[in-house]
Design a protein around this nucleic acid. Sequence first.
DNA 1: CTCCTTATGCCAACACCATTGACCTTAGAA
DNA 2: TTCTAAGGTCAATGGTGTTGGCATAAGGAG
Lengths: 245, 245
Amino acid sequence: MAKTVVPEQRRRRRRPTRGGTVLSEQLIIDTALRLLREHGSTGLSARRLGLALDCDPSALYRYFHGMDELTLAIGDALIGQALDGWSATGDGRADLRAIGLRIHAAYVAHPQAALLTASRVTGRAHELAADEAIIGVLRAGGFPLTATVRIYHAFIDQTLAFAALDAGALALPRSARRADEDIWESTYARLPAGDYPRIAEAAPRLAHEMVRSAYPSALDMLLDGAFLAALGATASSAGATGERQ
Amino acid sequence: MAKTVVPEQRRRRRRPTRGGTVLSEQLIIDTALRLLREHGSTGLSARRLGLALDCDPSALYRYFHGMDELTLAIGDALIGQALDGWSATGDGRADLRAIGLRIHAAYVAHPQAALLTASRVTGRAHELAADEAIIGVLRAGGFPLTATVRIYHAFIDQTLAFAALDAGALALPRSARRADEDIWESTYARLPAGDYPRIAEAAPRLAHEMVRSAYPSALDMLLDGAFLAALGATASSAGATGERQ
DNA sequence: CTCCTTATGCCAACACCATTGACCTTAGAA
DNA sequence: TTCTAAGGTCAATGGTGTTGGCATAAGGAG
């Protein structure tokens, strides 16, 4: 078994490391976040963290069962950060847009943690508060329960999914990330128009578009779809059925 | 520099390994997919691959410049599978819907591989073909270039993002997955209506809704938004439900 | 103020990982 | 048949997370 981890509350002895730092769960999380921000996204490892905290890497295992648990602890803090200070304005569409952008931003600011966290359901306080807020906005906006649940699901999963996708791009080693971005200019922009007429035509705009997150656009389209459909408009007039299976 | 990689077409000599297997790009990719399925998303490494192929890990570097390039090749194989046999019907919205569902399905069918590749840009043949198809559908549907690029970006990223999110859920260890799903009945369904009135009200429907993928719904909303906006409607001016409660 | 327990930091080691350069064998063109 | 270089192998480098054993000092008990 691993080393014994004492819950932060029950910690009594605080023995300084050889370098003089006094460790704590909070200090470790903060330092990890700093490492992630400063030293790039590959910059978090037990060894580096030990270096930054001036302690042996193995000392971290007195506070977390493993790097995985540390990452989850970081992720847990993110959810709280995202909606801290938010309040409804009464404009349902604008409120949902703001909530989505906030959550997305908080996750993307810490890509590693986002990757491990985004597809999990925690059932913890901050998550519950966010869900209550979202459903509240929809109900207050006059959506019936069935539509509310459907839109809530699409909305929250779209937000988390994009957060994870964009975080995934940010979490790549610098070289791979550069390579991915360069492809739009090195490959897509030089395709023979004979073989790929559509891409060739759109290439210059693609190079500009694809290096940014599509989340704001996608969010707007999803909200447009949800709110316009509520007005009685149907996409069938544009040649399709809005029905879901 | 690394070892020299000869493009698959120009390969002339096929020297069997010590164990008798004859390597090829295709065989390596297939074996990698098998390893991912069997051993989980962390189960793919040069060493394990070498073991499975009965060759030295370093032999792989004659076929790919590094594990990263292999990962991209795996991703491209998935896209290829997804659009194999697809052809346009002329109904733009329906075509996009079909493409989205196909790609989503292909990724979800290989959750471990999806996690590794969903956020990558490969620039390889199958990816190019898919992009050409999507942009082609939009242009043929009459969208101007600016709108085309914006919708294309939102569409493809949303598809990949949901694929990765849903793959992430499927890739969880069975126990963690059960736990995540149970939260909707154990936690959300039992919240005090006083503290969480909106969730309490929606709880029964949520329990049914949240165990399925939201991608089809979200896809429909996004397409509705894109195609309806093209008709001149805008949700911001409409704002009926958001107008005031 | 001293003693004793034990929490906690440190060390060394283990088992992985990707990648590389030198080597050697043999496929297949000439 | 020869002979070059493609392609498989070996050994080594420097990275990772993690663990068992040990030393030490924190802080309660007397």
